[in-house]
Design a protein around this nucleic acid. Structure first.
Lengths: 155, 155
DNA sequence: TATTGTTATACTCTATAACTATA
DNA sequence: TATAGTTATAGAGTATAACAATA
């Protein structure tokens, strides 16, 4: 490759004045990931938030709606329709809790566990393909740094 | 530090079944950054999108609304009110373009340039503080990997 | 015919308050 | 009194279609 080819597509990006911000780089990267993720989950008729909710319920059966809302960082009130949808598709049930009749223990059904497993496989595969442009070392560093940041900078 | 102290707060996070996804780690990290960023910009009465728009106009004076919408990855129609707001505060002007009277050349005012500079300084300082929990090497690696990903995985 | 900025609109997301039933 | 789930609602944010002016 020669100097001409190397500088051929050096059209300056109009957003270059924002690229010093890590937050901006994160946002742009995330929007690419989200679009890909949404495509992967659409095969299973799941939105990202429904997938996250279902995955947590499968991994943590019996948790309450308030606990799930906290885990997802959404308001309890906004979780209701998500749970309604999952329950309506017989992927989870709101089970009664004997000790406290205010609470619902969220339990996955067999179909819910199966769908979660299939969707997780799709999502994992899509992410593997999407991040193939990074080296294995870069992927693990990215994960490690993001998780360190989240843990230490958390509000 | 002993083994007891190390394992003291090992309460399992309910979302641990999602943490294998880089996209999930990105989303959680970004939500922390966005909250901090919003606080920094609120001092200047700017939202993130207004700040981004103003910064691009200052760095690239004369660009059109369509070009700016593309740079910000938002719809032209949704940019209108953002531009209205910035113009209403006399931070930018919609200048006429002699060669094509359909277009507006977006130009920063002196006040706009000053506010952009001040807001950029605030945002930079907030980001510096927020990311102080990472090493210099981790911060630069994070930036580098995110930008490599965006460049290579872009749709 | 096509493009730029604009308006109108609908749909999703998010946040807040208030209600009910339970504790 | 306080909490869990729910309802209603308002405000953002986002996407689409269509229009007037201009090319």
């Amino acid at each position: 490759m020669d100097a001409i080819a190397q500088t051929a597509d050096q059209e300056p990006a109009p957003d270059r004045h924002l690229s010093s911000f890590i937050g901006y780089a994160m946002k742009r990267a995330l929007s690419i990931v989200q679009a890909d993720f949404a495509r992967a989950l659409a095969e299973h008729d799941l939105r990202a938030v429904s997938f996250s909710a279902l995955s947590i319920i499968v991994g943590e059966p019996g948790l309450t709606q308030t606990q799930l809302a906290d885990a997802l960082q959404i308001e309890r009130s906004n979780l209701v329709t998500i749970i309604d949808e999952l329950a309506g598709r017989n992927l989870i049930v709101r089970a009664a809790v004997a000790q406290d009749r205010r609470r619902h223990a969220l339990m996955p059904t067999t179909a819910g566990k199966q769908l979660a497993a299939a969707a997780q496989a799709s999502a994992t595969e899509h992410e593997r393909t999407l991040f193939a442009c990074l080296t294995e070392s870069e992927r693990s560093e990215l994960q490690r740094i993001l998780q360190k940041f989240r843990k230490q900078a958390a509000v």
